[in-house]
Amino acid sequence: MPLTEPISKPATAPRKKSAIREWIDSVLFAVIAATLIRWLFFSAFVIPTPSMENSLLVGDYLFVSRLHYGTTTPVTPLQVPLTHQTIWGTNIPSYLDWIQLPQYRLPGFTDVKNGDVVVFYLPVEHPDMYQKYSRVLPDLHPHPIDLRSNYIKRCVGIPGDKLEVRRGEVYVNGQAQTSPPRMQNEYFVSVKTAVNEENVFRKNGIVDFSQFTETFGDSIATNDEFGYVVKTTADLAEKLRGYDFVNRVEPVFMEQGLKEPFLFPENNATNWNKDNYGPIVVPKAGMTVQLSEINIAQYGDIITSYEGNENVAIENGKISIDRKPVTSYTFKQDYYFMMGDNRHDSADSRYWGFVPKDHIVGKAVFVWMSIDPNPTSFLKKIRWDRIFRMIN
Rank of each mutant, 00 (worst) to 15 (best):
P48T: 06
E53L: 08
F216C: 01
A285V: 07
V195P: 11
C155F: 02
F216I: 06
N150F: 08
L78A: 06
I321Y: 07
I391V: 11
E310N: 13
R386G: 00
A313W: 15
E250V: 08
I319P: 00
D348N: 03
G168P: 06
E169W: 15
N276T: 02
F188D: 09
G174D: 09
S370G: 01
G362Q: 01
I92W: 11
N91F: 08
I7G: 09
Y171V: 01
V80I: 12
V172D: 04
K318W: 09
G353Q: 09
T83S: 05
G300F: 05
P373N: 03
L258Q: 10
P74H: 07
M254Q: 10
Q175Y: 14
P325A: 06
D161E: 02
N185P: 04
I145L: 14
N199Y: 13
Y351S: 08
R38C: 07
T213N: 15
V230E: 02
T12Y: 10
S179A: 12
N91L: 10
F63V: 15
R166A: 03
T86D: 14
K239R: 13
W272P: 02
L56W: 03
S26C: 10
P142N: 04
S320P: 12
L163D: 01
T110R: 14
L163Y: 02
R350I: 03
T35N: 04
T232I: 05
L236V: 14
N199D: 10
S219M: 07
D128P: 15
S179F: 13
P180Y: 09
A221M: 09
T270L: 09
S328F: 08
T110Q: 12
G160I: 01
I280E: 00
F216V: 07
Y228E: 08
T376F: 09
T215D: 10
V282P: 01
T376K: 12
P159Y: 03
S370Q: 00
E197Y: 05
T110D: 10
M52V: 02
Y299D: 01
L291K: 00
P74N: 10
D334W: 05
N392L: 12
V252E: 10
E164Y: 04
P10M: 07
Y243H: 15
I371V: 13
H68I: 08
R38V: 02
L67E: 00
Y69Q: 01
N54I: 02
F109D: 13
M183K: 11
L40K: 05
R21H: 14
T72R: 12
N185H: 12
V165L: 03
F109H: 11
E310P: 00
T232N: 06
H143D: 04
M129W: 15
R383L: 06
G115T: 01
I302R: 00
F63L: 08
F264Q: 03
N276F: 03
K203W: 09
S377Y: 05
V124N: 08
A13K: 14
T73C: 04
I47W: 14
F216Q: 05
N374W: 14
G353N: 05
E250L: 07
G168W: 07
P2W: 00
S134N: 15
A313L: 08
I302E: 00
P50D: 08
